[in-house]
Design a protein around this nucleic acid. Structure first.
Lengths: 121, 121
DNA sequence: CAGGATCCGAATGGATACTG
DNA sequence: CAGTATCCATTCGGATCCTG
């Protein structure tokens, strides 16, 4: 399968059938926290605990894992300042910023149509 | 937290602190198959087994569950034709179609920047 | 054809305690 | 401050068998 767009640009690495780009991106960013982090970092760089305080409900472990994941995928950069106590600053990379665009569109849809989705109970 | 956009429109149902709209939407649609199904149905209505054949790798159980979820959230409609053998047709609702728009933007980003994401191994 | 019902392994994610 | 290390519950999702 895979969205129409793919048929335009597909060399397709059949070797080890990787899922289609869309599925792949969602597997990387579609977890519980990644998008939240990206959107926050879209506003300004954050320090670790600053992020921790800003994201309600996230555990320290998950924040670490999420950041490591995003960093490792090239969406977020991590800079260490060897001050005392040490400071670490996270920010979006250029790639991360580019992802922020379509993500913002999705966020807009979310706030606009949020009420129309049926409740879960 | 929650993206800037939220501060513009937030009545906030504090009662039972539901996550922010963005997180909520991602929890509903950010699973393994929902987006794929939505994008496919964006092209035309599908019958059950037609979908099953079109989505490589999905199990019958997951297709059912995904469709039930989307239907129950108001993103997909389900119409039964009491023919013999019976036919069931799935299509996007108006809400589903509206979601397709930002999703397409994300899909476009995916196919364009797919190669830039670092590999996982 | 379009599913419902079970079973089970794998991945996700929270809580907690400890560290340079 | 910015993590790492464990432990454990829940969820996700595939495989398989069965039905109107």
């Amino acid at each position: 399968m895979c969205p129409p767009a793919m048929t335009l640009s597909t060399p397709v690495p059949l070797a080890e059938h990787r899922a289609c780009p869309v599925t792949d991106v969602l597997n990387r960013v579609g977890d519980r926290w990644s998008v939240v982090v990206i959107v926050l970092l879209g506003g300004k760089p954050f320090r670790f605990n600053e992020l921790h305080r800003s994201i309600e409900g996230i555990s320290q472990r998950m924040l670490t894992r999420t950041l490591r994941g995003l960093e490792h995928e090239g969406l977020v950069s991590r800079e260490v300042f060897p001050t005392n106590p040490p400071g670490v600053e996270y920010a979006l990379t250029a790639l991360g910023e580019s992802l922020l665009v379509p993500l913002s569109a999705l966020a807009r849809w979310a706030v606009e149509h949020h009420g129309e989705l049926a409740a879960k109970p």
